[in-house]
Amino acid sequence: MSTADAMRARVLVTDDEAGIRNDLSDYLSHLGYHVSVADDAGSTLSQVTETAYGVLLLDDILPDESGLEILPRLLDIRPSMSVIVMTGCPTVKSVIKAMRRGACDFVVKPFELDELKTAVYRAAQRNQRLVDEAFRNCKDTTRDSGTVMNSVSQD
């Protein structure tokens, strides 16, 4: 996948701090991503349901539910979405939880924008790879069912 392809990914930034949301949104938009924002768990769940985001930057501490709590539900809705968990209070337990719940990356605040740029790019590539795999599998299944149908119709 080319750099330009990765940077066409839709990115959702969830953080309850308006300053962080806006800074990240401006920075990632400037890099070429299509960026939306959410400020709590509820609106993140509804936006992910409505839109096929490729990458989600998810703050752990949110006013209604924690990011790590809603992570499995988000991935049930969008299994190929790449989730980067962000936190200002990292612990080994929270990283393990993020890993076990399907996050693909974990960034500690305050972070360098270059670190974030790399993490989002890697996450977008991962998402594109998973989408391509799903598409290939879907095509294979359709082709196999076609073969079965042909063989049934010939019997």
Partner: peptide, 13 residues
């Protein structure tokens, strides 16, 4: 090391 494990696609830590 846990973050590094996550980035290296380790299944569990």
């Amino acid at each position: 090391s846990a973050v590094s494990a996550l980035r290296n696609k380790v299944a569990d830590y």
